[in-house]
Simulated scan of single mutants.
Amino acid sequence: MSDDPRRVYGTDRGEDPRPQPGRTYQELTGGPLDGQLLDVTGWDENALADGAALITEAGAYGPGGRALYGPAPGDSGRWEWEGDTP
């Protein structure tokens, strides 16, 4: 178990929301998911380069909307918010 206070995106109620040993994470910066971690364990280089559209109720489009995150230039451990989409 980690002492890292950041929450992992997508953890369910009752699950430990902290990062787990042996997993790989991207830190999400900016936008509605700022400060959360995305578990990218097992993602290939192409998927990591593409980024992700993550479901969030806190974005511009409300429930069911998605926040777009992509690689931060020069920082392989961080993805930056690129905007919201329905």
Rank of each mutant, 00 (worst) to 15 (best):
G74Q: 14
R23P: 07
D44G: 12
A52W: 00
A52E: 09
R7F: 09
A67R: 07
W43E: 06
E15C: 08
A49V: 01
I55C: 07
P73R: 13
G77E: 14
L38D: 02
G77M: 05
D34E: 10
A58V: 01
L68C: 04
T85K: 11
E27V: 11
G35C: 11
G31R: 09
L33Q: 07
I55T: 14
E82G: 04
V8Q: 05
D3Q: 13
A53Y: 11
Q36A: 07
G10H: 05
L38T: 02
D75T: 10
A53E: 13
Q20G: 10
G83L: 06
G31V: 10
R6S: 10
A49R: 14
Y69H: 06
E15L: 12
E27C: 02
T56D: 06
P73S: 14
T56P: 07
A60M: 07
Q36L: 14
Y25W: 04
G70W: 00
D84E: 05
G77K: 12
E82I: 08
G83I: 08
W81C: 09
P32R: 09
D44I: 10
N46P: 00
P63N: 09
G59H: 04
L28V: 07
W43N: 08
R18Q: 10
Y61C: 03
D84I: 08
R23D: 06
N46A: 14
D75V: 12
